[in-house]
Amino acid sequence: MFNTASTTPEKLLQMFAALLLFAAVMGVILFVASRLGGRRGDKWVGYLYLLPVVLMLSVGLVYPGLRTIYESFFDAAGKAFIGFDNYKTIFTDKDQLTVLRNTVFWVVFTPFVATAIGLLYAILVDRSRFESFAKALIFLPMSISFVAASVIWKFMYEYRPDQGRVKQIGLVNQIIVWLGGKPQQLLIDSPLNTFLLIIVLIWIQAGFAMTILSAAIKAIPDDIVEAARLDGVGPWTMFRNITVPSVRPTIVVVLTTIGIGTLKVFDIVRTMTGGQFNTSVVANEFYSQTFRADNQGLGAALAVLLFVLVIPIVVYNVRQLRQSEAR
């Protein structure tokens, strides 16, 4: 039951066995809880309901998290204590500095561009005849995996050598040729390649920004708009002085949310370049160091760095939410 299932019937059997086992555990919990009658037993019912969750989170999240922080102070093999050397490597090593630079590019560009496109699109299609269809088109990339999105864009960027009878099969290079340029190995030149990868995440996240901002735009009270219109306000002023200020808290939430997701971007980099050609980012470097280069210490330090970078964004996000709720 706990071995590796290799045929389809075995796999399905194992799945049903697991679900059955889980149902049995739930059954025991609920049975015991139902025996703990009266208001006095309440406390124990509460603990019982939380028991599996606390167990899983302690073993699967808290312990590994603390362990990783601890291991970030050890060398590659995890044997010798080396203090902050791994962190020093991240901030001084040439390759690691490229990783940091790329991560900055990602985090600066993705949220702002994706949000700007999402906002523009949300305003333009709002209440138009094709609104839901137009929105679905932009939102669809959000539902597919980052891996599939990467394959889709890798095909866009595909390069064929610039020789007489060879035709381009990637649309981007074909457009370059149509415009009279020479086809490029797009994913090889740094830092251009990082921006080409960033486009993929923007392509995915714009739909998210658009959906949330669209909901916020629809919630702007009409009296504000009416008043502005009576004053003869033009479209640009309306956008700048009414629409944007009204949805400002939402914009901040969208920006920070995409920012957090961008910090952890891994699938795109790994699928498109594998982190080669100076395209690696922190989350990808973490994976490479931990599981490919067998440098546990550095890998752990990169994971901790990711954690530390996420915290201020989350705190800011939560404070923004509090403020907008208090209003």
Binding site: A215, A219, A228, R229, S246
Partner: peptide
């Protein structure tokens, strides 16, 4: 989670003339 959900705002949307509509 405090992001306004589409369903929550949909009713408001139906009831009111929208800013974006004018802008649009």
């Amino acid at each position: 989670t405090a992001v306004p959900l589409p369903t929550a705002t949909a009713e408001a949307a139906a009831a009111k003339v929208k800013a974006a509509e004018v802008a649009k």
